[in-house]
Nucleic acid binder design. Structure first.
Length: 481
RNA sequence: GUCCCCAUCGUCUAGCCUGGUCCAGGACAUCGGCCUUUCACGCCGGUAACAGGGGUUCAAAUCCCCUUGGGGACGCCA
């Protein structure tokens, strides 16, 4: 029973007949970036296909020529690629498939399920306004439904929607859902300009592409009965529907640009790893017991629509940071090096040396949640000795006259240390504090401030070893000057 | 306004279908403590939730109803 849904924890079978192959799709409209919500929908569809050895189709819904742009299409493609959600089929462009949609509209006209309508958008708006004023639901009143009109300038085509009864389906995540048909009006399926509308295009494509599972945002729940009516009028089979709840901002309101409805690529700029974003998104609205950390492969192995949550979730940057930190630690320094290099460069520092990068990274894997943090915290490693910025407060507090006296001795000791490895440095420094009968604490912070310009850094031995003898000495000298 | 969906710690969630093992478990955040050369990591511990009201039942976070609250949809946008 690979497909089941849930309703308040109740599981139920969805569509008895076994599916030969699962086909899912992600159909973004290139009128905006790929944002968090879209990315999660894409991820769930990707997962649903992969988990079942199915096919994942990418379709660009660019039928709104006025608002769609090639730049946005590219941005969406980039976002998908960055997240690692590879599609098996497509991208298809709806703007290139109008013939298919229109053939279906013509079929509907021919079989009596659609009709020509001569009402102008203004007429319809007036009907809606009137209905609203009278406290009724704003709808097109169907006045052209039985006029037997033919094509003509300014005329659109509408679907003859059932006027009574109800339309029900078993939603993968919501369970049984039912709409009274009287709530629906005769929707436009072909605009006056001859172009098919959204519902017509979606339904035509889903059928043509063999889509078996339509997993989409909650906001499409109301669209489902409309699309089912078109499908029924066309005599096409119904896909399985699943509506995942929306992602809300921290304030429980629909995500806006302010709190996260920005492009997923913004998260790349913020130093997130795609693995971190994917992992966090998966856990927003879906759970697998108590497991928090997943790789994409683990998600594919564990994913099931029966674990999808039916209530909306708030986006929480703090938790995403924590998840990202895990993935940052899980990666090898070799993998991270080219990524970190970019952020170091963006700090205005010289091109970092690859070997040094790989030595620095392990020091910061437990200390950073993002690549930006990692770059900023480790910047002193990549800063030329002479340019090292010095925190004045740290200098005043730790580079006191007495500290400098000790520091000068440490400098000479280190200069004479042949083995500049971590253990070598540790041995030298330990010998020093024993001989001077001081606590290591006493020299630690002054050394740290001298080497890093700050009061916080990785361990001193590791820091010195990675910095190298020359830099270590140069920075000590600079602090003593 | 009408219709649809939703409701467990501040947040993400487990548990709900198959009522008792739940005076509700995990995670993020937060607050203590330990570790410690700083900062982190890590470890230990604490605070913190079944929206409210009615039912059903020996027993309800779990089933039913209502209320309240939240979200979504009502385009010749997608």
């Amino acid at each position: 029973m690979p497909f089941s849904g849930r309703l308040g924890g109740r599981s139920f079978p969805v569509h008895g007949e076994p599916m030969s192959q699962v086909v899912t799709r992600f159909p973004p409209s290139p009128t905006g970036f790929l944002h968090i919500g879209g990315a999660r929908t894409a991820l769930f569809n990707y997962l649903l296909a992969r988990t079942n050895g199915g096919r994942f189709v990418l379709r660009i819904e660019d039928t709104d020529a006025a608002r769609s742009t090639p730049e946005m299409t590219q941005a969406i493609l980039d976002g998908m690629a960055w997240l690692g959600l590879a599609h098996d089929d497509g991208p298809y462009f709806q703007s290139e498939r109008q013939d298919l949609y229109n053939a279906n509209v013509d079929a509907l006209l021919a079989n009596g399920h659609a009709y020509w309508c001569q009402c102008t958008p203004e007429d319809v708006q007036a009907m809606r306004d009137k209905a609203t004023a009278e406290g009724r639901k704003p709808k097109y009143d169907g006045r052209c439904r039985n006029l037997g009109l033919g094509p003509g300038p300014g005329r659109c085509v509408r679907l003859k929607t059932p006027q009574d009864g109800s339309t029900s389906f078993l939603d993968l995540v919501k369970g049984p859902v039912s709409f009274p048909n009287e709530e629906l009006d005769d929707l436009v399926i072909r605009r006056a300009d001859g172009g098919a509308t959204y519902h017509m295009a979606v339904v035509s494509d889903d059928h043509a592409m063999g889509v078996t599972h339509v997993l989409r945002g909650d906001d499409h729940l109301n669209n489902t009965p409309r699309q089912m009516h078109i499908l029924a009028a066309l005599g096409f089979p119904l896909p399985v529907y699943g509506h995942v709840p929306m992602i809300l901002g921290q304030d429980k309101k629909k995500l806006s640009k302010r709190h996260g409805a920005m492009s997923v690529m913004e998260y790349e700029k913020m130093g997130f790893l795609p693995e971190g974003v994917v992992n966090y998104l998966a856990r927003l609205g879906w759970a697998h017991g108590d497991q928090e950390i997943f790789t994409l492969d683990e998600l594919v192995a564990a994913f099931s629509t029966s674990n999808l949550n039916s209530s909306a979730a708030c986006f929480d940057l703090e938790k995403m940071l924590w998840v990202n930190a895990h993935h940052l630690r899980a990666k090898s320094p070799q993998e991270l090096a080219p990524l970190l290099a970019r952020f170091v460069r963006e700090l205005g520092l010289p091109e970092p040396d690859r070997t040094k990068l790989e030595a620095v990274i392990p020091l910061y894997q437990p200390r950073a949640q993002t690549l930006v943090e990692m770059a900023e915290a480790s910047a002193f490693f990549f800063t030329p000795d002479a340019d090292l910025p010095m925190d004045p407060a740290a200098r005043d507090k730790f580079l006191t006259a007495e500290a400098k006296a000790l520091l000068a001795e440490v400098r000479d000791l280190l200069a004479g240390t042949a083995d500049f490895s971590e253990p070598g440095i540790e041995a030298a420094l330990h010998g020093f504090v024993e001989a001077k009968a001081v606590k290591f604490k006493v020299i630690a912070q002054p050394i740290r401030v001298a080497l890093t310009g700050k009061t916080a850094s990785p361990g001193l031995y590791e820091t010195m070893a990675v910095l190298g003898k020359d830099s270590t000495l140069a920075r000590l000298d600079r602090a003593l000057a």
